[in-house]
Amino acid sequence: MKHSFKNIYWFVIKKVKMGRKKIKGLTLQFIPYREISGLDSVERIKKLLKIILDNKVVVLQGRLRVDEESRLIEDTMVMIDNVKGFKGIELEVISGDNEGRSFFERFKSGIAKMIVGQQDAITIIGPASIVKEMKKDPSKLEIVMS
């Protein structure tokens, strides 16, 4: 995977002192899918990381593509090295499972996924300093705050 970390440096520098801020309360930020649908991979990740660095938990409609997801983790690792106080993220996806569906329904959702991206899922990403762990059961998701 070709990768340059240059494009994330701009806010790395900006947020260096983040760790010293005291967190007051918990902020959830909901992002509808259409907000990220027009962006390319780099910009999506940039947008998400920016919110996370503000110590907010992101609730995203839909899910990222797999390569974006791994890219997000990679960028997170670079951020851990560079941003003081940043410990990483917790990321979890819950999606409608395909198992109970008929063939036609699966086909339909497959086509829809191809055209508009996977929207029938929810992705939750939070900074590790706030979200302690996420427990996933196929049907439900538990988030433990620290």
Binding site: I73, T76, M77, I80, K87, G88, I89, E90, L91, A128
Partner: peptide, 13 residues
């Protein structure tokens, strides 16, 4: 073919 890698995590403290 066997690939032995370190584990992957999303947070390192």
């Amino acid at each position: 073919k066997l690939v032995d890698t370190p584990g992957i995590a999303t947070k390192v403290d």
